[in-house]
Computed example of a mutant assay.
Amino acid sequence: MSRASGPHPFTPAAESRGTARTPGGLIVFLNGTSSSGKSSIAGELLPILGDTYFSMAVDAFHAMRSTPPDLSPDQLRRVLLSTWKGFHRAVAGMAAGGNNVVVDHVLSEQWRLSDCVDLFVPQDVVLVGVHCPLPELERREQQRGDRPPGLAARQMTRVHAHGRYDIEVDTGAHGPLDCARQIRDFLPHRPRPTAFEQLRRAAGGARAAPKTVP
């Protein structure tokens, strides 16, 4: 029997109506600038969590893609947009299947955060702010040599602009394993409402607010 006529069981619409849903996996969402240490934290975090987790990084999705070299700037922007949107939906699908996920992402554009807030079950997300002082970011960029100079500096003011996290770590003051342990120890005691719940409520309030007449 076809299922095309009904909503997908993990759509945000089904969750927001309060209908019954299959329990999903936990999403540990690492957000920080390029070179802030998210991948290193994820690598240390998975072995110490004591449960099955999948590591999903947006860079890995970009690496999967074949892109013709003669795309116009507008075409390339559309390809990148589709990649980011597909990544978000892949994460949502894995969690909806009951899988725990550690996400490595850069929320340097507001729409990326809004898309994730709409897609993910907000009480199942632990939003982790990964911080690092700018001089250390610049040192890491130079050492890596595979990022445009100044990329982290350009992202820095935008990545954390939403201002809400469940937990924050500083990779300038602590190594990846120490940061991973901080996150692991926080998970059993995470408070409600979660940062994603607060962000969804704020977004709903902004959409419902009446327009002012000048």
Rank of each mutant, 00 (worst) to 15 (best):
residue 52 T to D: 15
residue 62 H to W: 11
residue 180 A to H: 00
residue 196 F to E: 02
residue 166 D to V: 06
residue 90 A to G: 15
residue 77 R to G: 11
residue 163 G to C: 05
residue 41 I to G: 02
residue 74 D to I: 06
residue 30 L to D: 04
residue 34 S to W: 01
residue 167 I to C: 02
residue 90 A to L: 13
residue 140 R to T: 02
residue 98 G to K: 07
residue 123 Q to C: 08
residue 83 T to I: 13
residue 188 P to C: 08
residue 149 P to F: 10
residue 157 T to R: 11
residue 29 F to P: 03
residue 110 Q to I: 00
residue 28 V to D: 04
residue 130 V to E: 07
residue 125 V to S: 02
residue 50 G to Q: 09
residue 140 R to I: 06
residue 13 A to R: 13
residue 102 V to W: 05
residue 89 R to Q: 15
residue 181 R to E: 08
residue 6 G to S: 13
residue 63 A to G: 12
residue 52 T to C: 06
residue 202 A to H: 11
residue 36 S to Q: 05
residue 202 A to M: 13
residue 25 G to S: 07
residue 189 H to Y: 11
residue 72 S to K: 06
residue 175 G to N: 09
residue 188 P to M: 09
residue 138 E to H: 09
residue 103 V to P: 00
residue 182 Q to I: 01
residue 87 F to Q: 00
residue 205 G to N: 13
residue 89 R to L: 14
residue 190 R to M: 10
residue 201 R to M: 11
residue 176 P to T: 08
residue 206 A to H: 03
residue 195 A to C: 07
residue 204 G to E: 14
residue 183 I to T: 06
residue 119 L to G: 05
residue 8 H to F: 13
residue 205 G to A: 14
residue 141 E to R: 02
residue 128 V to Y: 03
residue 59 D to N: 12
residue 100 N to Q: 11
residue 29 F to T: 00
residue 148 P to R: 04
residue 44 E to Y: 04
residue 209 A to I: 00
residue 79 V to R: 04
residue 18 G to C: 08
